[in-house]
């Protein structure tokens, strides 16, 4: 199974983060975009680099800063003296994998330009539309919004990321290996590319065929319904979130070699898919979004 090989290969570099790797791969298979939220230095970039290497994808990294302009992301039309015409110079977004580092440090204007391109899978500059490459996968990283100098992404834009994962610190064993072995970034050259882009596209299609039974649909409906009636949230999950939950669970089942979705699959992708779309009322902040959304999941019988 090519997917499990990819996971195994990635795990060689990103130590002790199997679940995060799997989730990231699911996100890729579901044709969604990934938001990694954590402190600097926990391996966000390494994960992105590893994935693009393993899946054989063209990779660019774009560091977002407060003075980054939309054109720096999408590209710019430049007047060509020899042809006497404007010609389009594609920006870093024209890559199969774009690592948008520290996305919340850019101004909302630039954030919007990126997110629009993510949603539409194309870029329009000076009235011309330029399609983005296939597959197209954005991994955005963001520092916790409490840090200084950040523009928090509004919920409407967060909704466009299929998943948000948190890397967290590696466990002790992994960290020891990390410290005692070579720098993972150097090891990157040694790992093999397991797939071609076409194979990845094929897998994306296959994971779409994973069977979602009526029972699972009902389960998703119950979850979505419950978040909407939960007073602790400002608003519940959108229909897009429900679809995302379904799609991600399909990929999760696919990664685990099944052609049908189990409730466990929903549960596995639930927090990655849902938590960034939910927002607590500030005055009732005695429990976090995570705790509350977990409570909802636990209260639904399967």
């Amino acid at each position: 199974m090519p997917v499990s090989k990819c996971i195994a290969e990635s795990a060689k570099i990103v130590l002790g983060k199997n679940k995060e790797i799997k989730l990231a791969i699911c996100c890729l298979l579901s044709q969604g975009h990934l938001l990694i939220e954590d402190l600097p230095g926990v391996g966000k970039t390494t994960l992105a680099l590893t994935l693009s290497k393993v899946f054989g994808l063209a990779f660019t990294r774009l560091q977002f800063t407060s003075d980054l302009l939309p054109a720096d992301v999408t590209g710019i039309s430049v007047f060509d003296n020899s042809t006497k015409r404007f010609s389009f110079h594609p920006g870093p977004i024209f890559n199969q994998v774009l690592l948008a580092d520290e996305i919340n440090r850019a101004t909302p204007k630039t954030q919007s330009a990126l997110l629009e391109a993510m949603e539409e899978h194309k870029v329009s500059v000076d009235g011309e539309t330029h399609p983005l490459p296939q597959p197209f996968f954005v991994i955005a990283t963001q520092n916790p919004s409490s840090q200084v100098g950040t523009f928090a992404l509004p919920e409407s834009q967060l909704d466009r990321f299929l998943m948000r994962i948190k890397m967290g610190y590696p466990d002790k064993v992994a960290e020891k290996r990390l410290l005692s072995a070579q720098d993972p970034r150097q090891l990157l050259d040694q790992i093999k590319t397991m797939l071609t882009a076409d194979e990845l596209l094929g897998m994306q299609q296959q994971s779409k065929q994973v069977h979602v039974s009526e029972n699972i649909i009902n389960y998703i409906l119950q979850i979505v319904e419950k978040t909407r009636h939960e007073a602790g949230f400002i608003h519940g999950l959108s229909p897009r979130a429900g679809m995302a939950l379904k799609r991600a669970s399909q990929s999760w089942a696919f990664v685990h070699n099944r052609d049908y979705v189990l409730p466990e699959d929903i549960q596995a992708v639930y927090s990655a898919v849902c938590e960034h779309r939910l927002e607590r009322h500030y005055e009732q902040a005695e429990s976090s979004v995570q705790q509350l959304s977990r409570k909802i999941l636990d209260s639904i019988e399967v």
């Binding site: 189990l262 409730p263 466990e264 549960q267 999941l297 636990d298 209260s299 639904i300 019988e301 399967v302």
Partner: peptide
């Protein structure tokens, strides 16, 4: 458990 799926 209430929320435990059949596979788990």
């Amino acid at each position: 458990r209430k929320n435990e799926g059949p596979a788990d």
